[in-house]
Every structure is written in structure tokens, then in C-alpha cells.
Design a protein around this nucleic acid. Structure first.
Lengths: 343, 343
DNA sequence: TGTGCTTGCGAAATCGATTTCGAAGAGGTT
DNA sequence: AACCTCTTCGAAATCGATTTCGCAAGCACA
């Protein structure tokens, strides 16, 4: 049986209230009894019961990390996210609880909040925009502070932390334009998310600024369900009358697979074709050639999300927290000046 | 204010006890009242308070994942571990709580256990053997089920899940021997862990079986603190009278850095030198050449650890859970028949 | 009608800590 | 001596659910 406050009370001959006050550093305890209590607590190995404390305080000092997406699809991202999040949380005496089987289940999130086992939640990979707004409303009704990550939510009252993908895609495209590319392919996702729209917007902005007309045939949708789609989309690009001299891929893994398909087609990268990824995963740095990509400040996003959430938890009246972090262009060897042979 | 069992009791005109029994499917409730209670609970959006339930049941349905190692050093490993762990836990209605700032702090782990905020813990990257045994004793005294991961603990009473690194290193060495290598370098870690001993044992076993004498000059210790050590250890190998024709590295990242150092020294891999890694991280598959390595069943280890822990939690008298999982040799392009030029 | 048994329900205790509120005692002032 | 203030402490209520135990009603049977 663990040592309870009752045991302490008995051995010291002091009431439970006084013990509690001494341990919580309340003013109405004499310095003498306080030290006696602390000493005894240490000697007996007393540690307050988390459950009892939570019940009384109506607070758990736990933050829920709710992953509303098949977790194996985002574990790379999570591994960059979690260390920062956990560290910041623990500095504030909070811990992270993982809820990963929450795919598309608004109701389960609601139940989680109603059971009050966390003081606030971070919702990683929220659903489409309309559902996100509805979900946020639900959580607001339950009075549970929450933050969406890592996608922006176009709504003034909703807190989120995201990366500036408009800027990222624009910089990447500008980089290619500066190298001399005019026909730049863009492989986007079929799912309609803000992230995708943002990157597409960045891509078109850069083209417009450079006076390059938008060519719809250069934009294809990757089918994330189909592992071999990559090869076929590659063929689609190559089959064009005037194939692109550079291709932007929505994520690094897509770009890495494109790299090996290029090799299989005897297309040299970057001499014959420039390839760029997005996300800056570790693997992108060790390919041959190393991948030009855009690095999101993933770790920082996690840190910021926790900090913002803590602010919302601590200060009930706090403003919605909205952060869009800049991203960083990483130029490596997979992009270069286009070959002028056919031009 | 959230809906409590009291509210339900009031609106239904039924005692709290009966509500509780109905919700927990106890036998002494009539089918009629049970449906009425369930209906009302649903209508009012009632969800039992986790804190109150935990306090009363003396059980939290939470598993602690305690990381006793600088988390950014192991986040890759964690990202493979966590999805499986979380999934299995959640199927059994448990959740994972992360405790990452537990580096070298036996006392904080003890306090965690005393506060009873988890029903059991998984200790990732336990300290040295002697400390591990002491820690296990401490947790046993507190009556908290626990499992060590991912290192074996040479002690009959202690539960752990680990990978068979003796087998892994032996297979890797045998693979090189089969290719014709006789002088095989081995870069181990300076820290004295079972893992390291195991791999070294596998290495020497393979040599012995092949009748190749052990040459201590072929075994160097990497200094994990020093990022540039890799380059110097590489020089150490090259400066030998008879340099190795193949080198085993303790981890993939070390091998990947060696790959680029080799390139800088104009040493071709695998023609001039075979290089092998260990762990099978994603990056190891996209290097040029792709790395021969050994893949641990990391995800499976996480799953097994949670399953074992749940067994210990559920069945107090369960045997210690000890699992050593086989590892898988992955032969890729960084190892090949040695060049006979100088032989 | 009286006895025995089953079924369904509720009063009250309990889990362990926190907090409110009142009281006792010490010390000072008039 | 009467009154006040300040410090220190403890009794009791509270957080919300679960569980034990006893009671009452209903039914069957002699």
C-alpha cells in the first residue's frame, strides 16, 4: 500500500489539512511544522496521489496529443514534433498523453474532453476545414483549450500553429526560375487541404511574378493511396510534348522515389531534370544527389503549439493563438541550371 | 460545468449507485432502468470523470513511456516504436503518457510510480546494468509493473524486450566473410552497454567460426560525443599497415558519415571498401550506394513491450516477460567482394 | 397466512487530497 | 481585566465515481 496523507498525519500527530498546507507551501503553517512535515514526507517516501489531486483540483496537468490521421503515415513528422513538445510541457510540469486511434472520430475526441483527463489538446492533422471549425466549436462548448497543428485554419477564433507553405513553395519555385527553368512541374495531393492550396498558391505566385503562364498540364495530383502512382505520374510528365525541366514534389518521399525512377529512365538529375522535395526529412540529405527541399521548423512548431496551449490553459481569457512559421529553402544538388540542348 | 453522475441521478430520479451500476453493466439493475440510464447519459452527454474513476478504482489505464536518454538522440527510434505501442495500448483501452526528461533520475521515476499516475511503465534505454537492477528492485518494491527496452537485462526476474544483437552482428560479419573479406573493421561504442557487448560477441563468434584470428587493432571505439570523430577513426583504419577491406559500424548514421568520408578520400564503396551499418533507419536505403545493414524489428518490439506490460498489469502473478527478437540482415550495395589488387 | 428466496434499488462509506471556516492561543494595547 | 489582532491549526465539506450491504417488494410454496 502506498503512503497516503493519512499515514503522514498519523505518524506526525498533525491534521491532514496541515500536512497538505505544508506540502503546498501555504502561508498558515509555522516554519517549524513545515520542516517537520517535509522531513517526514521524505522519510516515508510520500508522494501525493495523482488521481486524488486531479479530482480535487479539477486539473490533471496533462496535455492530449490527438493524432487524427493514420499514425504510421505521420510518424516521421511526429518524431520531430514530440521531443520539443514533451520538453516544453515537462518544464511546465505537464505531460503528454498520446491518443492515436482518433481517425475521423469527432465523437471520441468529445468524449475524451468530457472525461476531463487532459487540460487541453493539440489536434495533429485536423480534418477538412469545415469539420475543423465544427470540431473547434464542439471543444469550445466543452471549454477545453485546443490548438490545431500543423495546418492553418482560416478562422479568426481558432488557434493553430502552421508553417508558411505559400512562402515555401514560392521560394522553391523562384529558386528554379532563377536557375533558368520555365517549365516547372508540380505534383500536388489529391486531397483538398489548406496545405495543398497554399503550396499551389506559392507556386502560381512565383510563376506570375516571373511572367510565366500557368500550364495546367504541368500540375498533376499524386494518388497517395497508390504506391506505384509515382512511376506513372513520372511517365505523364515525360509524355508531354514539352516535358518539364524541373519538378516540385509535394513531399520528400515522393521526390526520393522520383529520383530512382529517373535513374531507371536514364534521366540524369540534375543535368537532365531538376527535382525538389518538401519537408526536409533526414533522408533527403543523403540521397545522390542530395535533395533540394524546404525545411519546416517542425520542432519549433511543436514547441510553439505547447507554449500556446499552456497559455490558453493558464489564462482562460487569452486571445486565440495563431502562428504561421517561416520555412527555410535548402538548396542541394538535385536542382541545377537546365540543359539547353533541346531549347 | 460538465455533467456528473449527480446530474443524471437528479434528472432520472434514480440513485447514483444505480446509475453507476447501469453504466458498468452490473447484474443488479433491471433491463428497463438500464436502458433509461443509458439513454439519459447519451442525451445529456455524460462521460464519467477520469479523475474520480481513477481514484476510486485505483487504476488509471495509462502506461508510462519513460525515456531515460536525451530524447533527440533517440527520436528516430521512438518514431518507429510509438505507433505500434500506442495502437496496441489503445486497443486494450490504455493510453501512453510520455516522460522524456528522466535522464539519469532514478528518483523521479520512483516519484512517478508513487504518485500512481500510471499502471505500469516501459523504460526506454535503461542505464548500465547495475543501475538497471537497482531500479527494477525499486519499482518492484513500489509494486509497479515495468519492462525495459530495448536492451536485454541479464537477470532472471527482470522483464525486457530486446533484439538479438549477437545474431545480428554475427550474420553481418558472416556475410562479409562469405564475400571473401578477412580483415574486417568494427567500430563499437565507448559506453559499456550490453548491446555493445552483444554485437562485439557476434562479431568475434563469426570470426572464430571462420578461423580468422581476432585483431584488436581492427576494433576501435567511436566517441559519440565528438561529431568529427568519425573522420579520425576513418583515418585510424586507413593508417593501419594492412587496412580493413570492410568496416562494420555500430549504427547507420556512423556508416552514412563514413560513406561521405570515403568519397572525400577517393575510396570507392564497395569496390575499395565495404561498409555496413546497423539499425536499418530509413536513410540507409537511399544512400548511394544503399547501405547493407541489419534491421531491428523496432515496431514489433514496441508492440511486444506493451503486450507484455499489459500482461504484468492484468495478471499480478505473471512470470517475468523476457523477449529477444531476431533481427534481419539487409544486403544492399555498400558491401561486395573485396578488391584483390593488393592481396 | 407465514416462510423463504430472488430481484432491484438506495444509503452510506470509500478512494486521497484540498480548501474553507472557525477556534484556540499568544501577544499587545488601553 | 477586557478587548483586539495575528498566527497556527484542525474539523468537516468537497471533488465524482464505485462498492458494499441491507431493505423492500414480488413471487412461490407449504
Amino acid at each position: 500500500m502506498p503512503v497516503t496523507i493519512k499515514d503522514l498525519s498519523k505518524t506526525l500527530g498533525v491534521s491532514r489539512s496541515t500536512i497538505s498546507k505544508a506540502l503546498n507551501d501555504r502561508p498558515d503553517v509555522s516554519p517549524d511544522t513545515k520542516t517537520r512535515v517535509l522531513q517526514a514526507a521524505h522519510d516515508l517516501g510520500y508522494q501525493p496521489s495523482a488521481a486524488a489531486r486531479n479530482l480535487r483540483r479539477q486539473r490533471t496537468n496533462k496535455i492530449g496529443l490527438v493524432v487524427t490521421y493514420p499514425i504510421h503515415r505521420v510518424s516521421d513528422f511526429l518524431s520531430e514534433l514530440i521531443p520539443g513538445m514533451a520538453t516544453v510541457a515537462e518544464e511546465a510540469e505537464y505531460n503528454l498523453i498520446l491518443y492515436t486511434s482518433m481517425v475521423g472520430s469527432e465523437e471520441r475526441i468529445q468524449n475524451l474532453c468530457r472525461s476531463r483527463e487532459v487540460d487541453g489538446i493539440i489536434i495533429a492533422w485536423p480534418p477538412r476545414q469545415s469539420e475543423t471549425v465544427a470540431l473547434s466549436q464542439l471543444l469550445t462548448d466543452e471549454d477545453v483549450p485546443h490548438i490545431f497543428l500543423p495546418r492553418r485554419v482560416p478562422h479568426d477564433d481558432i488557434s493553430y500553429v502552421a508553417a508558411d507553405h505559400v512562402q515555401g513553395a514560392r521560394q522553391l519555385t523562384q529558386h528554379l526560375i532563377a536557375l533558368g527553368h520555365r517549365r516547372i512541374g508540380f505534383e500536388r495531393l489529391p486531397e483538398v487541404y489548406e496545405t495543398d492550396d497554399d503550396r499551389h498558391a506559392g507556386y502560381t505566385q512565383a510563376l506570375r511574378q516571373a511572367g510565366i503562364p500557368y500550364d495546367a498540364s504541368l500540375v498533376v495530383s499524386a494518388d497517395s493511396q497508390d504506391d506505384d502512382y509515382e512511376r506513372r505520374s513520372f511517365d505523364v510528365f515525360q509524355a508531354l510534348d514539352e516535358p518539364p525541366t524541373a519538378i516540385l514534389f509535394f513531399t520528400d518521399p515522393l521526390a526520393i522515389r522520383a529520383l530512382s525512377h529517373a535513374k531507371a529512365h536514364c534521366i540524369r538529375v540534375p543535368q537532365d531534370l531538376s527535382i525538389a522535395g518538401y519537408d526536409g526529412i533526414p533522408s533527403s540529405g543523403v540521397t545522390e544527389p542530395a535533395l533540394t527541399t524546404v525545411r519546416q521548423a517542425t520542432s519549433k512548431m511543436g514547441v510553439l503549439a505547447v507554449e500556446s496551449l499552456l497559455k490558453l490553459i493558464t489564462d482562460g481569457g487569452a486571445e486565440p493563438q495563431q502562428h504561421i512559421l517561416p520555412v527555410e529553402l535548402i538548396v542541394r544538388q538535385s536542382t541545377a541550371v537546365p540543359w539547353k540542348g533541346s531549347a
